[in-house]
Write a protein that binds this DNA or RNA. Structure first.
Length: 832
RNA sequence: GCCCAGGUGGCGGAACGGUUUACGCGCACGACUCAAAAUCGUGUGGUCUAACGACCAUGUGGGUUCAAAUCCCACCCUGGGUACCA
């Protein structure tokens, strides 16, 4: 037997698999299974996160393949994005060069993992043949009014000089560079994802299998609320102020009105004597960054405008204020102040000495005043509200008041969403050019389909100057208007990278199609994806956008399904050895390449799969690598024990162990419980190690079950046991070449083309059963009985009663009750 | 604040009404070795006991049950998401 040296066998098999095209598939064959892992951004190197995503997906894909399914497991690169451009600015390398080099490196690293990808279907998003279809989709969206040009307050990163979507702002900071994000009014391209809000809400009991955390996270983000819009007349002015509320039952408690500083009526409302103060407040509020606004979270500030409006419910005059705790972009940008039932309004009223009226109380007869924050109630009984007094809210009062408001004509029911339209314009170079031409005569003109793709020009100045880099490519910008043939300019912005990755899994199926976005026939057969592995951080971004694109594709008759993935699996995170997130600046990064060199890819694959549940987060602990490494060593050593047919016959106990393990491993993989699947294999290994000889059948079954986890080691060992010279000679290349040419052609030579073992229930039962004997809830003895008397309660009871250890606790006592759970436990109750 | 997930040995974790601590790491002892590493074997929750054994242990406090880590109620702590959303 040779020694187990991973570095000698792993590259050998990787090469062989590639040469024989082992993992390529024919999409026209039946029994489809689409196994998808989030494709990587080509940042330069594979990190542990990739091992998690792709390792898990690969284990699953390999298992399904062995189970006889036609598994499609593609890979590609999400290649547009800021890091490429930053590298260009910093080091003078063109983003394209930088990206291509990284892709080359990373493909090598993917191979070193032993991944079973179908590279023949690779998708790289910065390839014009891919992004031309981004442009094509954008133009379809434009036609349908889903893509539109709008001026709006957006998140702006002053460092990256670009707009960010809400999802790209993390605690008030840019998710790319970490600088504080400010609010800025910019003209933008938006996607009307809000039109799809209702369709994107998850039902309580979905038919597809996505984690509850993702579903709830998305629903909260969409943030549907059912309220009412109420109009307030302004004293001495024509205009009206609209507010949105979900608590209309508090209308009689409204004592003031608050507008966001950005509200369009603000300038009209400010009376001359308040102008200086109010103008200053408004200006300052708009300058504040999100971080600054948040740091002042606790204290509310505002200014009085000098104007009054009328509460339509009771005709009372109430003052109009401006305050930055009101968000301009939510609802109507104005809020009715109900200090008696809203904590923020209460704090504001206290601070500025505004009137506080109690409209909700603990009981219908409670007439006490509101003194402290504890008296502020959102639910209870309506008081001081005319004809509505005594009703309970929200139970009976809310709908009655809504009805009344609608009848009286100052209120209208409205549904609101927290979800905003998606701003997709980015003032960056390395992205999909927006296929639009701006013409002074014709306005916004779409680039005709036949002129797609609009390719990125190569010669551009990348340094941020306040205008998009593409604007520096003068020759590229200048273009004839497709309508009037006059002088016109190209749009110089690019699409948000999330646009690219919202639909890549469709293109995987037909990546070389130059006539259409994809063949409907292929997609119809293969979508939805059967299982999608990825990171929890994509709950509110990528996975939600993809669902939106799927709905849009359905609307333009490209596909017929509502959801693109039947099952979503979130993976966890490997932290650095210091239990902190791995980052270069922290210097706690574990480099997978180095670990592979030391222990081999199979060991790392098992480490990642074994030491935590797949969705857990925990640190990389270097000593722990020895567990998986020793495990593979022992599996390797076991080949010495493989016996000839006669002396290796399996006993009942052996067969039970084997079938138990087959069952456990199969079920655990299906449920993405890789850690316990491996534990089961370790238990079986411990059992096999204790034996003198093991049957060839046993060893082969063991290797098959281990194959998805350790593809290289098992491939090597498979060749050893399959060759006739078991345990005498090693399976060097000489042996391999001796393999018949025919078997090489049919792929049947490889362990990864074998059938997955099946467990047979008839071996699972034990001859003897151990039953715990409990007295007053405590286990006192273990009774071992034959299988044949397990269902004879009286006999078991008698035997249990007579157990020596049990007797000690039963002697002289009266048994009040006996409970027997067949084959598991017998419980005597003697005390009170 | 709100929503979600979770608190089990020295550590990562199993079990998710029925023999708590599978599997692995670490540690201790033993074998091999001139020696070390590697490897193999044995042991390993706590307290008390010479020992047999007994008692106590799944964040805390209650409850349901013959039986609770598991179900119910209250509270504490940790991680993640989200946030003046009216």
């Amino acid at each position: 037997m040779k020694k187990y040296i991973p570095s000698q066998i792993e590259p050998k098999w990787q090469k062989k698999w590639e040469e024989t095209d082992l993992y390529s598939i024919d999409l026209t064959k039946p029994d489809k299974f689409y196994c998808l892992a989030e494709f990587a951004y080509p940042s330069g190197d594979l990190h542990m996160g990739h091992w998690f995503t792709f390792g898990g997906a690969d284990i699953f894909a390999r298992t399904k393949r062995m189970q006889g399914l036609n598994v499609f497991f593609p890979n590609g690169f999400d290649a547009f994005g800021l890091p490429a451009e930053n590298a260009a600015i910093k080091r003078g390398i063109h983003p394209k060069t930088w990206t291509n080099e990284n892709i080359k490196t990373m493909k090598k690293q993917f191979a070193s993992m032993g991944g079973s990808y179908e590279w023949g279907h690779q998708v790289i998003t910065c390839d014009p043949e891919y992004y031309r279809w981004n442009q094509w989709i954008f133009l379809r969206m434009l036609k349908r009014g889903i893509a539109y040009r709008g001026k709006a307050l957006v998140n702006w990163c002053p460092f990256d000089q670009t707009v960010l979507a809400d999802e790209q702002v993390v605690v008030g900071q840019c998710d790319r560079c970490g600088n504080a994000v400010i609010q800025k009014e910019v003209e933008q391209w938006f996607l009307k994802i809000t039109q799809y809000a209702e369709r994107l809400i998850w039902p309580d009991k979905p038919t597809i299998n996505w984690p509850q955390a993702v579903r709830e996270g998305q629903n909260n983000w969409i943030g549907k609320s059912e309220g009412i819009e109420i109009e307030f007349r302004i004293k001495n002015l024509e205009s009206r102020i609209k507010v949105y509320t979900v608590f209309p039952e508090t209308i009689f408690g409204v004592t003031f009105m608050v507008l966001a500083p950005e509200h369009p009526l603000v300038s009209q409302l400010i009376k001359p004597e308040y102008k200086i103060e109010a103008d200053q407040y408004t200006k300052e509020a708009q300058k504040k960054s999100a971080v600054e606004r948040m740091s002042e979270e606790k204290h509310k500030t505002g200014v009085f405008t000098g104007s009054y409006c009328i509460n339509p419910a009771n005709g009372k005059e109430i003052p109009v204020w401006i305050a930055d705790y009101v968000i301009a972009s939510y609802g109507t940008g104005a809020v009715m102040g109900v200090p008696g039932s809203d904590h923020r309004d209460f704090e504001f009223a206290k601070k500025y000495g505004l009137e506080i009226i109690k409209v909700i109380s603990k009981s219908a007869s409670d007439k006490s005043e509101i003194v402290t924050e504890n008296d502020v109630l959102e639910a209870g009984f309506i008081v001081n509200s005319g004809q509505f007094d005594g009703l309970e809210t929200p139970l009976s009062a809310r709908d009655k008041i809504k009805d009344w408001m609608e009848e009286e004509g100052f209120g209208k029911r409205k549904v609101n969403y927290h979800l905003h339209d998606w701003s997709v314009s980015r003032q960056r170079y390395w992205g999909t050019p927006i296929p639009i031409i701006h013409c002074d005569k014709c306005g916004i003109v779409p680039v005709p389909d036949e002129d797609l793709p609009v390719e990125l020009p190569a010669d551009v100045d990348f340094t941020p100057k306040g205008e998009p880099p593409l604007a520096t490519a003068k020759a590229w910008v200048a273009v004839k208007c497709p309508k009037c043939k006059g002088e016109a300019r190209r749009d110089t912005e690019t699409l948000d990278g999330f646009f690219d990755n919202s639909w890549y899994f469709f293109r995987y199926l037909d990546p070389k199609n130059s006539k259409e976005i994809f063949s409907k026939k292929i997609v119809e057969k293969w979508i939805p994806v059967d299982i999608y592995f990825g990171g929890a951080e994509h709950t509110l971004g990528h996975t939600l956008y993809s669902r939106f694109f799927t709905e849009f594709f359905k609307d333009i008759d490209l596909i017929g399904v509502d959801e693109y993935a039947l099952r979503r699996i979130n993976h966890g995170i490997v932290l650095g050895t210091d239990n902190e997130k791995m980052s270069k600046s922290r210097g706690n990064v574990v480099d997978p390449d180095k670990e592979v060199k030391k222990y081999g890819a199979d060991t790392i694959r098992i480490y990642v799969a074994f030491f935590m549940p797949y969705d857990a987060t925990g640190p990389w602990v270097p000593e722990r690598i020895w567990g998986p490494y020793r495990f593979l060593q022992r599996v390797w050593g076991l080949q010495e024990k493989v016996a000839t047919a006669e002396d290796g016959r399996q006993k009942t106990e052996d067969l039970r162990m084997m079938h138990k393990t087959i069952k456990k491993v199969t079920e655990d993989i299906e449920q993405i419980k890789f850690n316990t699947a491996i534990a089961a294999l370790m238990e079986w290994l411990n059992h096999l190690s204790r034996k003198e000889k093991i049957a060839k059948e046993e060893y082969k079954t063991f290797l098959l079950l281990l194959a998805p986890f350790a593809p290289h080691t098992t491939e090597e060992l498979w060749q050893v046991v399959e060759s006739s010279v078991v345990s005498r000679q090693s399976s060097d290349n000489a042996n391999l070449k001796a393999d018949s040419e025919a078997s090489l052609k049919t792929d049947s030579w490889s362990i990864h083309k074998q059938s997955w073992p099946k467990s047979d229930n008839k071996y699972l039962e034990n001859e003897e059963v151990s039953i715990a004997v409990q007295i007053d809830g405590k286990v006192r003895d273990i009774l071992v009985i034959g299988k044949d008397i397990v269902n004879n309660k009286e006999v078991v009871e008698k035997m249990a009663y007579e157990c020596k250890k049990a007797q000690k606790f039963l002697e002289g006592k009266f048994v009040k009750k006996t409970v027997y759970i067949q084959g598991k436990i017998i419980s005597f109750v003697v005390s009170n």
